[in-house]
Design a protein around this nucleic acid. Structure first.
Length: 503
DNA sequence: AAAAAAT
Protein backbone atom coordinates (compact mmCIF):
# COMPACT_ATOMS: atom_id res chain seq x y z
CA UNK A 1 0.00 0.00 0.00
CA UNK A 2 1.27 3.43 -0.95
CA UNK A 3 1.29 6.29 1.52
CA UNK A 4 -0.82 8.43 -0.78
CA UNK A 5 -3.68 5.96 -0.44
CA UNK A 6 -3.90 6.59 3.27
CA UNK A 7 -5.75 9.91 3.28
CA UNK A 8 -2.82 11.84 4.62
CA UNK A 9 -2.27 15.56 4.09
CA UNK A 10 0.07 16.62 1.30
CA UNK A 11 2.27 18.31 3.86
CA UNK A 12 2.81 14.97 5.56
CA UNK A 13 3.22 13.08 2.31
CA UNK A 14 5.94 15.49 1.23
CA UNK A 15 7.82 14.84 4.45
CA UNK A 16 7.41 11.09 3.93
CA UNK A 17 8.76 11.41 0.41
CA UNK A 18 11.68 13.46 1.68
CA UNK A 19 12.44 10.64 4.07
CA UNK A 20 12.60 8.34 1.08
CA UNK A 21 9.47 6.27 1.68
CA UNK A 22 6.65 5.57 -0.68
CA UNK A 23 5.38 2.17 0.41
CA UNK A 24 3.73 1.90 3.82
CA UNK A 25 4.78 -0.99 6.04
CA UNK A 26 2.10 -3.44 7.18
CA UNK A 27 1.69 -1.83 10.58
CA UNK A 28 1.40 1.60 8.99
CA UNK A 29 -1.11 0.50 6.38
CA UNK A 30 -3.28 -1.13 9.02
CA UNK A 31 -2.91 1.33 11.87
CA UNK A 32 -3.10 4.72 10.21
CA UNK A 33 -6.73 4.45 9.04
CA UNK A 34 -7.76 3.16 12.47
CA UNK A 35 -6.07 6.01 14.29
CA UNK A 36 -7.62 8.50 11.91
CA UNK A 37 -11.04 7.00 12.62
CA UNK A 38 -10.53 7.83 16.28
CA UNK A 39 -10.68 4.39 17.90
CA UNK A 40 -8.23 3.07 20.46
CA UNK A 41 -5.55 0.88 18.93
CA UNK A 42 -3.24 -1.79 20.22
CA UNK A 43 -0.31 -2.40 17.91
CA UNK A 44 1.81 -5.46 18.35
CA UNK A 45 5.03 -4.64 16.57
CA UNK A 46 8.63 -3.86 17.22
CA UNK A 47 10.64 -0.83 16.32
CA UNK A 48 12.03 -1.02 12.84
CA UNK A 49 8.65 -1.98 11.48
CA UNK A 50 7.74 1.63 10.93
CA UNK A 51 5.91 1.88 14.20
CA UNK A 52 6.72 5.50 14.98
CA UNK A 53 5.26 6.79 11.74
CA UNK A 54 2.23 4.56 12.20
CA UNK A 55 1.11 6.67 15.13
CA UNK A 56 3.11 9.79 14.25
CA UNK A 57 1.51 10.51 10.89
CA UNK A 58 -2.13 10.32 11.97
CA UNK A 59 -1.37 12.22 15.17
CA UNK A 60 0.36 14.99 13.27
CA UNK A 61 -2.50 15.09 10.81
CA UNK A 62 -5.03 15.72 13.53
CA UNK A 63 -2.99 18.34 15.32
CA UNK A 64 -4.43 21.82 15.15
CA UNK A 65 -1.35 23.93 14.53
CA UNK A 66 -3.24 27.08 15.46
CA UNK A 67 -3.92 25.60 18.87
CA UNK A 68 -1.07 26.40 21.27
CA UNK A 69 -1.90 23.57 23.67
CA UNK A 70 -0.39 20.14 24.00
CA UNK A 71 -2.67 17.83 22.04
CA UNK A 72 -0.72 14.58 22.01
CA UNK A 73 1.42 12.84 24.60
CA UNK A 74 3.80 9.98 23.91
CA UNK A 75 5.27 8.03 26.80
CA UNK A 76 8.53 6.14 26.19
CA UNK A 77 10.44 3.70 28.37
CA UNK A 78 13.92 5.12 27.79
CA UNK A 79 15.37 8.54 27.25
CA UNK A 80 17.04 7.60 24.00
CA UNK A 81 13.81 6.29 22.56
CA UNK A 82 12.05 9.50 23.58
CA UNK A 83 14.66 11.54 21.72
CA UNK A 84 14.50 9.30 18.69
CA UNK A 85 10.72 9.53 18.55
CA UNK A 86 10.78 13.30 18.95
CA UNK A 87 13.27 13.62 16.12
CA UNK A 88 11.23 11.45 13.80
CA UNK A 89 7.98 13.25 14.53
CA UNK A 90 9.64 16.60 14.08
CA UNK A 91 10.88 15.42 10.68
CA UNK A 92 7.51 14.08 9.61
CA UNK A 93 5.76 17.24 10.74
CA UNK A 94 8.18 19.74 9.30
CA UNK A 95 5.81 21.03 6.61
CA UNK A 96 2.93 21.24 9.02
CA UNK A 97 4.97 23.46 11.31
CA UNK A 98 3.92 21.46 14.30
CA UNK A 99 6.15 21.62 17.32
CA UNK A 100 7.29 18.39 18.97
CA UNK A 101 9.49 18.37 22.06
CA UNK A 102 11.02 15.67 24.26
CA UNK A 103 11.21 15.79 28.04
CA UNK A 104 13.31 13.26 29.90
CA UNK A 105 15.58 12.97 32.90
CA UNK A 106 19.26 13.64 32.97
CA UNK A 107 19.04 16.85 31.04
CA UNK A 108 18.51 20.44 32.11
CA UNK A 109 14.95 20.86 33.30
CA UNK A 110 14.98 24.62 32.87
CA UNK A 111 15.62 24.27 29.18
CA UNK A 112 12.71 21.88 28.94
CA UNK A 113 10.48 24.31 30.82
CA UNK A 114 11.39 26.97 28.30
CA UNK A 115 10.53 24.59 25.46
CA UNK A 116 7.23 23.80 27.16
CA UNK A 117 6.44 27.51 27.34
CA UNK A 118 6.92 27.76 23.59
CA UNK A 119 3.64 25.90 23.03
CA UNK A 120 4.50 22.52 21.56
CA UNK A 121 1.57 20.48 20.28
CA UNK A 122 3.21 17.12 20.88
CA UNK A 123 5.29 16.04 23.86
CA UNK A 124 7.35 12.86 24.02
CA UNK A 125 8.69 11.91 27.43
CA UNK A 126 9.85 9.37 29.95
CA UNK A 127 7.58 8.76 32.95
CA UNK A 128 9.71 10.20 35.75
CA UNK A 129 10.38 13.53 34.14
CA UNK A 130 6.82 13.86 32.86
CA UNK A 131 5.57 13.50 36.43
CA UNK A 132 8.17 15.96 37.61
CA UNK A 133 6.87 18.54 35.17
CA UNK A 134 3.28 17.81 36.12
CA UNK A 135 4.09 18.45 39.78
CA UNK A 136 5.84 21.68 38.89
CA UNK A 137 2.80 22.70 36.85
CA UNK A 138 5.05 23.18 33.85
CA UNK A 139 3.28 20.50 31.84
CA UNK A 140 -0.40 21.05 31.17
CA UNK A 141 -2.23 18.10 29.77
CA UNK A 142 -5.86 19.23 29.88
CA UNK A 143 -6.05 19.56 26.11
CA UNK A 144 -4.45 16.23 25.27
CA UNK A 145 -6.57 14.16 22.90
CA UNK A 146 -4.19 11.36 22.04
CA UNK A 147 -1.90 9.32 24.25
CA UNK A 148 0.66 6.81 23.02
CA UNK A 149 2.09 4.17 25.34
CA UNK A 150 5.15 3.13 23.41
CA UNK A 151 6.92 -0.18 24.15
CA UNK A 152 4.32 -0.90 26.80
CA UNK A 153 5.76 -4.28 27.73
CA UNK A 154 9.06 -2.63 28.41
CA UNK A 155 7.49 0.04 30.60
CA UNK A 156 5.67 -2.66 32.47
CA UNK A 157 8.91 -4.52 33.15
CA UNK A 158 10.40 -1.34 34.44
CA UNK A 159 7.59 -0.82 36.92
CA UNK A 160 6.14 2.26 35.33
CA UNK A 161 2.51 1.25 35.60
CA UNK A 162 1.82 3.48 38.60
CA UNK A 163 3.63 6.41 37.03
CA UNK A 164 1.65 6.03 33.85
CA UNK A 165 -1.52 5.89 35.86
CA UNK A 166 -0.65 9.13 37.64
CA UNK A 167 0.21 10.81 34.36
CA UNK A 168 -3.05 9.73 32.78
CA UNK A 169 -5.00 11.22 35.68
CA UNK A 170 -4.01 14.58 34.26
CA UNK A 171 -5.32 13.82 30.80
CA UNK A 172 -8.99 14.37 29.91
CA UNK A 173 -10.83 11.09 30.17
CA UNK A 174 -12.18 11.06 26.62
CA UNK A 175 -8.78 10.85 24.93
CA UNK A 176 -7.77 8.31 22.33
CA UNK A 177 -5.18 5.79 23.48
CA UNK A 178 -2.67 3.95 21.31
CA UNK A 179 -0.68 1.18 22.90
CA UNK A 180 2.35 -0.44 21.30
CA UNK A 181 4.03 -3.55 22.57
CA UNK A 182 6.29 -6.15 21.04
CA UNK A 183 4.85 -8.88 23.24
CA UNK A 184 1.37 -9.22 24.67
CA UNK A 185 1.60 -10.83 28.10
CA UNK A 186 -1.44 -10.84 30.36
CA UNK A 187 -0.46 -7.75 32.39
CA UNK A 188 -0.40 -5.74 29.17
CA UNK A 189 -3.88 -6.91 28.34
CA UNK A 190 -4.95 -5.84 31.84
CA UNK A 191 -3.53 -2.38 31.28
CA UNK A 192 -5.31 -2.24 27.96
CA UNK A 193 -8.60 -3.14 29.61
CA UNK A 194 -8.09 -0.53 32.26
CA UNK A 195 -7.04 2.39 30.10
CA UNK A 196 -8.63 1.69 26.75
CA UNK A 197 -12.10 1.50 25.26
CA UNK A 198 -12.84 -1.32 22.88
CA UNK A 199 -9.42 -1.21 21.32
CA UNK A 200 -8.81 -2.58 17.85
CA UNK A 201 -5.83 -4.87 17.76
CA UNK A 202 -3.32 -4.76 14.93
CA UNK A 203 -0.97 -7.68 15.03
CA UNK A 204 2.06 -8.07 12.87
CA UNK A 205 2.80 -11.72 12.28
CA UNK A 206 4.45 -13.26 15.27
CA UNK A 207 6.29 -15.44 12.83
CA UNK A 208 8.52 -12.45 12.30
CA UNK A 209 9.53 -12.56 15.95
CA UNK A 210 13.12 -12.91 14.92
CA UNK A 211 13.59 -11.92 11.34
CA UNK A 212 14.96 -14.71 9.19
CA UNK A 213 17.36 -12.16 7.81
CA UNK A 214 19.36 -12.66 10.98
CA UNK A 215 21.83 -15.52 11.08
CA UNK A 216 21.78 -16.67 14.67
CA UNK A 217 24.84 -18.38 16.08
CA UNK A 218 25.88 -19.61 19.48
CA UNK A 219 29.34 -20.22 20.81
CA UNK A 220 30.03 -22.51 23.72
CA UNK A 221 32.58 -20.74 25.82
CA UNK A 222 33.60 -20.80 29.42
CA UNK A 223 33.36 -17.53 31.28
CA UNK A 224 37.10 -16.95 31.39
CA UNK A 225 37.52 -17.62 27.67
CA UNK A 226 34.69 -15.47 26.47
CA UNK A 227 36.59 -12.26 26.07
CA UNK A 228 39.34 -13.76 23.97
CA UNK A 229 36.88 -15.77 21.94
CA UNK A 230 34.86 -12.69 21.21
CA UNK A 231 37.79 -10.56 20.11
CA UNK A 232 38.96 -13.39 17.87
CA UNK A 233 35.52 -13.44 16.34
CA UNK A 234 35.74 -9.70 15.77
CA UNK A 235 38.99 -10.21 13.92
CA UNK A 236 37.50 -12.88 11.72
CA UNK A 237 34.02 -11.45 11.16
CA UNK A 238 35.12 -7.83 10.95
CA UNK A 239 31.75 -6.34 11.81
CA UNK A 240 30.88 -3.05 10.22
CA UNK A 241 28.93 -1.97 13.26
CA UNK A 242 28.72 -4.22 16.29
CA UNK A 243 26.49 -4.04 19.32
CA UNK A 244 27.73 -6.03 22.31
CA UNK A 245 25.46 -6.75 25.23
CA UNK A 246 26.65 -7.26 28.78
CA UNK A 247 24.52 -8.23 31.72
CA UNK A 248 25.42 -5.46 34.13
CA UNK A 249 26.65 -1.90 34.00
CA UNK A 250 29.87 -2.96 35.59
CA UNK A 251 30.55 -5.63 33.05
CA UNK A 252 29.83 -3.19 30.28
CA UNK A 253 32.46 -0.87 31.76
CA UNK A 254 34.98 -3.66 32.03
CA UNK A 255 34.32 -4.96 28.56
CA UNK A 256 34.67 -1.50 27.12
CA UNK A 257 37.96 -0.94 28.92
CA UNK A 258 39.22 -4.30 27.74
CA UNK A 259 38.28 -3.73 24.14
CA UNK A 260 39.79 -0.27 24.11
CA UNK A 261 42.98 -1.65 25.60
CA UNK A 262 43.23 -4.04 22.70
CA UNK A 263 42.79 -1.28 20.21
CA UNK A 264 39.15 -1.80 19.27
CA UNK A 265 37.15 1.29 18.57
CA UNK A 266 34.73 0.73 21.44
CA UNK A 267 32.57 2.73 23.83
CA UNK A 268 30.03 1.72 26.44
CA UNK A 269 26.51 2.85 27.14
CA UNK A 270 24.42 2.24 30.26
CA UNK A 271 22.16 3.98 32.70
CA UNK A 272 24.84 5.19 35.09
CA UNK A 273 26.56 7.32 32.50
CA UNK A 274 25.63 10.95 32.17
CA UNK A 275 22.90 11.64 29.70
CA UNK A 276 25.34 13.74 27.74
CA UNK A 277 27.73 10.81 27.44
CA UNK A 278 24.92 8.45 26.47
CA UNK A 279 23.81 10.74 23.70
CA UNK A 280 27.27 11.40 22.35
CA UNK A 281 28.22 7.72 22.30
CA UNK A 282 25.01 6.85 20.55
CA UNK A 283 25.58 9.61 18.04
CA UNK A 284 29.10 8.37 17.32
CA UNK A 285 27.74 4.89 16.77
CA UNK A 286 24.94 6.06 14.51
CA UNK A 287 27.33 8.04 12.38
CA UNK A 288 29.80 5.19 12.11
CA UNK A 289 32.59 6.88 14.04
CA UNK A 290 32.33 4.11 16.55
CA UNK A 291 32.44 0.45 15.53
CA UNK A 292 31.84 -1.38 18.79
CA UNK A 293 29.08 -0.27 21.13
CA UNK A 294 29.00 -2.15 24.41
CA UNK A 295 25.64 -1.87 26.14
CA UNK A 296 23.35 -3.03 28.87
CA UNK A 297 19.75 -3.70 27.98
CA UNK A 298 19.23 0.06 27.89
CA UNK A 299 20.03 -0.29 24.20
CA UNK A 300 18.16 -3.54 23.67
CA UNK A 301 14.77 -2.16 22.85
CA UNK A 302 13.39 0.43 20.59
CA UNK A 303 16.58 2.01 19.41
CA UNK A 304 16.64 2.25 15.69
CA UNK A 305 20.21 2.21 14.52
CA UNK A 306 20.55 1.36 10.90
CA UNK A 307 23.52 -0.62 9.76
CA UNK A 308 24.21 -2.75 12.83
CA UNK A 309 25.78 -5.76 11.16
CA UNK A 310 26.49 -7.86 14.26
CA UNK A 311 24.96 -8.32 17.68
CA UNK A 312 27.06 -10.14 20.25
CA UNK A 313 25.43 -11.41 23.39
CA UNK A 314 28.54 -11.49 25.52
CA UNK A 315 26.22 -12.43 28.35
CA UNK A 316 23.27 -14.52 27.31
CA UNK A 317 20.02 -12.80 28.29
CA UNK A 318 18.10 -14.63 30.99
CA UNK A 319 14.85 -13.30 29.67
CA UNK A 320 14.03 -14.77 26.25
CA UNK A 321 12.12 -11.60 25.30
CA UNK A 322 15.26 -9.64 25.87
CA UNK A 323 17.04 -11.83 23.34
CA UNK A 324 14.42 -11.06 20.73
CA UNK A 325 14.79 -7.36 21.36
CA UNK A 326 18.56 -7.42 21.39
CA UNK A 327 19.08 -9.23 18.13
CA UNK A 328 16.31 -7.13 16.64
CA UNK A 329 18.88 -4.31 16.55
CA UNK A 330 20.38 -5.98 13.49
CA UNK A 331 18.93 -7.24 10.23
CA UNK A 332 16.81 -4.15 9.89
CA UNK A 333 15.39 -2.34 6.91
CA UNK A 334 16.17 -5.03 4.42
CA UNK A 335 19.75 -5.59 5.54
CA UNK A 336 21.02 -8.90 6.76
CA UNK A 337 22.45 -9.38 10.20
CA UNK A 338 24.43 -11.76 12.34
CA UNK A 339 23.99 -12.50 16.01
CA UNK A 340 26.37 -14.46 18.18
CA UNK A 341 25.40 -15.60 21.65
CA UNK A 342 27.99 -16.87 24.11
CA UNK A 343 26.81 -19.71 26.25
CA UNK A 344 28.72 -21.19 29.15
CA UNK A 345 27.93 -24.72 30.30
CA UNK A 346 25.72 -23.60 33.19
CA UNK A 347 23.69 -21.32 30.94
CA UNK A 348 22.30 -24.01 28.67
CA UNK A 349 18.84 -23.66 30.18
CA UNK A 350 18.64 -20.04 29.05
CA UNK A 351 19.61 -21.14 25.58
CA UNK A 352 16.81 -23.67 25.55
CA UNK A 353 14.34 -21.03 26.76
CA UNK A 354 15.33 -18.70 23.96
CA UNK A 355 15.18 -21.37 21.29
CA UNK A 356 11.77 -22.40 22.49
CA UNK A 357 10.43 -18.88 22.23
CA UNK A 358 11.92 -18.03 18.86
CA UNK A 359 11.49 -21.50 17.44
CA UNK A 360 14.90 -21.06 15.88
CA UNK A 361 17.87 -23.25 16.55
CA UNK A 362 21.06 -21.26 16.86
CA UNK A 363 23.89 -22.66 14.80
CA UNK A 364 26.91 -23.66 16.82
CA UNK A 365 29.92 -21.61 15.82
CA UNK A 366 33.41 -22.89 16.35
CA UNK A 367 35.58 -20.33 18.10
CA UNK A 368 38.27 -19.20 15.70
CA UNK A 369 41.79 -20.30 16.41
CA UNK A 370 44.48 -17.79 17.21
CA UNK A 371 45.93 -18.23 13.77
CA UNK A 372 42.60 -17.50 12.10
CA UNK A 373 42.14 -14.43 14.21
CA UNK A 374 45.62 -13.20 13.49
CA UNK A 375 45.12 -13.75 9.79
CA UNK A 376 42.01 -11.62 10.10
CA UNK A 377 43.93 -8.88 11.83
CA UNK A 378 46.60 -9.14 9.24
CA UNK A 379 44.15 -8.64 6.43
CA UNK A 380 42.78 -5.61 8.16
CA UNK A 381 46.29 -4.26 8.59
CA UNK A 382 47.01 -4.94 4.93
CA UNK A 383 43.98 -2.96 3.94
CA UNK A 384 44.89 -0.15 6.23
CA UNK A 385 48.38 0.03 4.89
CA UNK A 386 47.12 -0.04 1.33
CA UNK A 387 44.58 2.64 2.10
CA UNK A 388 47.08 4.85 3.75
CA UNK A 389 49.52 4.35 0.94
CA UNK A 390 46.95 5.47 -1.60
CA UNK A 391 45.93 8.33 0.52
CA UNK A 392 49.44 9.59 0.85
CA UNK A 393 49.93 9.22 -2.86
CA UNK A 394 52.59 6.67 -2.22
CA UNK A 395 51.10 4.03 -4.42
CA UNK A 396 54.45 2.45 -4.86
CA UNK A 397 54.37 1.61 -1.24
CA UNK A 398 51.36 -0.66 -1.49
CA UNK A 399 52.94 -3.47 -3.51
CA UNK A 400 56.00 -3.31 -1.33
CA UNK A 401 53.85 -3.70 1.73
CA UNK A 402 52.00 -6.59 0.16
CA UNK A 403 55.25 -8.28 -0.54
CA UNK A 404 56.46 -7.72 2.97
CA UNK A 405 53.27 -9.15 4.34
CA UNK A 406 53.42 -12.20 2.17
CA UNK A 407 57.02 -12.86 2.95
CA UNK A 408 56.73 -13.22 6.66
CA UNK A 409 54.97 -15.76 8.73
CA UNK A 410 51.57 -14.20 9.35
CA UNK A 411 51.69 -15.21 12.95
CA UNK A 412 54.92 -13.43 13.69
CA UNK A 413 53.98 -10.40 11.73
CA UNK A 414 50.52 -10.19 13.17
CA UNK A 415 51.83 -10.40 16.69
CA UNK A 416 54.14 -7.61 15.90
CA UNK A 417 51.37 -5.55 14.38
CA UNK A 418 49.18 -6.23 17.33
CA UNK A 419 51.82 -4.81 19.57
CA UNK A 420 52.23 -1.78 17.39
CA UNK A 421 48.58 -1.15 16.77
CA UNK A 422 47.24 -1.41 20.25
CA UNK A 423 47.20 1.89 22.02
CA UNK A 424 48.29 0.45 25.30
CA UNK A 425 50.10 -2.81 24.72
CA UNK A 426 50.79 -3.33 28.38
CA UNK A 427 47.12 -3.42 29.07
CA UNK A 428 46.48 -6.25 26.66
CA UNK A 429 45.85 -8.89 29.28
CA UNK A 430 42.27 -8.17 30.10
CA UNK A 431 40.47 -9.49 33.06
CA UNK A 432 36.72 -9.46 33.29
CA UNK A 433 35.27 -10.02 36.70
CA UNK A 434 33.59 -13.40 36.88
CA UNK A 435 29.85 -13.50 37.29
CA UNK A 436 29.87 -14.59 40.87
CA UNK A 437 32.38 -13.22 43.36
CA UNK A 438 35.23 -15.58 43.87
CA UNK A 439 35.15 -17.51 47.13
CA UNK A 440 37.54 -16.27 49.74
CA UNK A 441 40.23 -14.17 48.30
CA UNK A 442 42.93 -14.83 50.82
CA UNK A 443 42.24 -11.57 52.53
CA UNK A 444 45.56 -10.84 53.99
CA UNK A 445 44.69 -7.28 54.78
CA UNK A 446 45.85 -5.80 51.54
CA UNK A 447 43.36 -5.07 48.90
CA UNK A 448 45.49 -2.61 47.03
CA UNK A 449 45.58 -4.21 43.66
CA UNK A 450 43.55 -5.97 41.27
CA UNK A 451 40.41 -3.97 40.89
CA UNK A 452 39.96 -2.21 37.69
CA UNK A 453 42.38 -2.65 34.92
CA UNK A 454 43.40 -6.12 35.85
CA UNK A 455 46.71 -5.53 34.25
CA UNK A 456 48.87 -8.53 34.47
CA UNK A 457 45.78 -10.57 35.20
CA UNK A 458 47.20 -13.27 37.43
CA UNK A 459 44.77 -16.12 37.26
CA UNK A 460 46.50 -17.94 40.01
CA UNK A 461 45.75 -16.60 43.39
CA UNK A 462 48.86 -17.93 45.02
CA UNK A 463 50.20 -15.47 47.49
CA UNK A 464 53.28 -14.29 45.74
CA UNK A 465 53.22 -10.96 47.37
CA UNK A 466 56.76 -10.16 46.57
CA UNK A 467 55.94 -10.61 42.94
CA UNK A 468 54.88 -7.01 42.71
CA UNK A 469 57.83 -6.14 40.63
CA UNK A 470 58.19 -8.98 38.25
CA UNK A 471 56.48 -7.42 35.32
CA UNK A 472 57.81 -9.21 32.35
CA UNK A 473 60.23 -6.93 30.75
CA UNK A 474 59.83 -7.54 27.08
CA UNK A 475 58.43 -4.12 26.60
CA UNK A 476 61.58 -2.55 27.87
CA UNK A 477 62.44 -1.81 24.29
CA UNK A 478 61.67 1.84 24.18
CA UNK A 479 58.29 2.63 22.74
CA UNK A 480 58.78 6.33 22.88
CA UNK A 481 59.57 7.44 19.43
CA UNK A 482 60.86 10.81 20.39
CA UNK A 483 63.87 10.84 18.18
CA UNK A 484 64.62 14.48 17.89
CA UNK A 485 62.46 15.11 14.88
CA UNK A 486 58.89 15.10 15.92
CA UNK A 487 56.65 13.04 13.76
CA UNK A 488 53.71 15.36 13.67
CA UNK A 489 55.07 16.51 10.39
CA UNK A 490 53.01 13.80 8.86
CA UNK A 491 49.41 14.66 9.53
CA UNK A 492 48.22 11.14 9.75
CA UNK A 493 49.22 8.69 12.34
CA UNK A 494 52.30 6.87 11.20
CA UNK A 495 53.49 3.60 12.50
CA UNK A 496 56.79 1.87 12.31
CA UNK A 497 56.43 -1.65 11.20
CA UNK A 498 59.88 -2.71 12.20
CA UNK A 499 60.34 -6.38 11.76
CA UNK A 500 62.16 -7.91 14.61
CA UNK A 501 61.78 -11.40 15.91
CA UNK A 502 60.40 -11.78 19.35
CA UNK A 503 63.15 -12.74 21.77
C1' DA B 1 18.80 -10.66 39.65
C1' DA B 2 19.59 -6.54 36.55
C1' DA B 3 18.32 -2.72 34.12
C1' DA B 4 15.61 1.37 33.30
C1' DA B 5 13.50 5.92 35.32
C1' DA B 6 13.19 11.98 38.95
C1' DT B 7 16.65 14.64 41.93
Amino acid sequence: MKFNELNLDDSLLSAVTDAGFSEATPIQAQTIPLVLSGVDVIGQAQTGTGKTASFGLPILQEIDVQNPNIQALIISPTRELAVQTQEELQRLGKYRHSKVIAVYGGSDIRRQIKQLHAHPQVVVGTPGRLLDHIKRHTLKLEHVQKVVLDEADEMLDMGFVEDIESILENVPSEHQTLLYSATMPKPIMRIAEKFMHEPKIVKIKSKELTADKIEQYMVRSKEYEKFNTMTRLFDVQKPELALIFGRTKRRVDELTRGLKARGYNAEGIHGDLSQQKRMSVLHQFKTGKLTYLVATDVAARGLDISGVSHVYNYDIPQDPDSYVHRIGRTGRAGHSGVSVTFVSPNEMSYLRGIEQLTNVRMLPLKPPTDAEALTGQLEAAKQEIAQQATHDKLDKFAPAAQELLEEYDPLVLAQLLLKNLSKDPEAIPVKITPERPLPSRHSRGDNRSNRGHGRGGHHNYRSDRRGGNNRNSNHGASRDNSHGHANHSSQRRRRNYTVRTKD
